[in-house]
């Protein structure tokens, strides 16, 4: 009962506030902002991730179910390459296969822009990334005990010629259960670099590892990643639960035997006692018969 009246009173207040607020809201416009990140995958496809948020008094709030468009732009031209809809975290992503042709400037720079047009009181926003094509090759080689990663990288000139990459650091990772573990950096100069793979990374139960070579936050080429599988892990034998222990489901043998011996000892005496009692009863019957 009390609850009901309270609810009623609360709703009344809320209703009033809502009315007042809606007047305020009409005049009020909300700015949005968009973040864009691009990554070139192993299969040479590219993935574009955006996060769209709107400004509110409480700070940035994700905008959901909003359509964002992606364009490739160069030298004043612009073409739509796709669009995506944000989810409840305000995120959307678009994957473009390796066959996608991006418009390029004379220097070979491509630019991808994403834009949210805005709707109602929400003002639109834009963001873009630039990148050049980079040819990245990763090969793994095994010799005796040492495992080596070879990285070859070259960019493509305006006339289609290969230009070896100069003085660039690539990061190396292995995939873990939740995240990637950085194991080192590979310095690439004149289009080539090598990296001695450490021999103490466990990998999964079969010693399999997924190795990533990544170019990160590069001004010219953006983010590029190449993944390779290798059986280079030295997995230690797994965590084996003892079969019969205090905390396993099966009890240690000595416990079972002790228990059985004790119980057999005691209960056999009980049975003996009961048998004797039964005999007493029988003897009585005999006496009666006599």
């Amino acid at each position: 009962m009390i609850n009901k009246t309270r609810l009623f009173r609360q709703s009344l207040i809320v209703l009033l506030l809502t009315i007042v607020a809606s007047f305020q809201l009409m005049a009020q416009e909300t700015a949005s902002s968009i973040e864009l990140k691009a990554l070139k995958n192993s299969d040479d496809s590219r993935i574009f991730n955006v996060k769209l948020t709107g400004e509110s008094e409480a700070g940035a709030v994700p905008v959901f179910e909003a359509t964002v468009d992606f364009y490739t732009i160069a030298e004043g031209k612009s073409e739509l390459v796709g669009s995506a809809v944000t989810n409840k975290e305000g995120k959307a992503s678009l994957k473009l296969g390796k066959e996608t042709r991006y418009l390029k400037s004379k220097e070979g720079v491509a630019e991808v822009k994403t834009s949210f047009k805005g709707l109602g009181k929400l003002i639109g926003s834009e963001a873009s990334v630039k990148f050049k094509e980079l040819n990245l090759q990763v090969t793994l080689s095994e010799k005796d005990t040492s495992n080596t990663i070879h990285v070859k990288a070259s960019s493509i000139g305006p006339n289609g010629e290969m230009i070896p990459l100069k003085e660039t650091n690539f990061n190396l990772y292995v995939q873990g259960l939740f995240s990637k573990l950085k194991i080192g950096e590979c310095f690439v100069d004149a289009g080539e670099g090598t990296f001695e793979f450490p021999n103490n990374i466990p990998g999964d139960e079969n010693g399999n590892l997924k190795i990533f070579v990544r170019l990160e936050e590069n001004e010219d080429y953006g983010e590029i990643e190449k993944a390779e599988n290798a059986k280079w892990g030295n997995h230690r034998s797994g965590f084996a639960e003892p079969e019969r222990s205090l905390w396993s489901s099966g009890a240690p043998i000595w416990m079972i035997t002790t228990l059985i011996i004790l119980l057999a000892g005691v209960w056999s005496h009980y049975i003996y006692a009961i048998v004797q009692l039964i005999k007493i009863r029988k003897e009585d019957k005999k006496i009666e018969q006599k």
Partner: peptide, 19 residues
């Protein structure tokens, strides 16, 4: 239990009680 205090019964009871 039909205990008649015969010597066998008596002995039985005594033996079992001891045990």
């Amino acid at each position: 239990l039909g205990y008649q205090d015969t010597p066998t019964q008596r002995n039985r009871i005594k033996k079992v009680t001891d045990i």
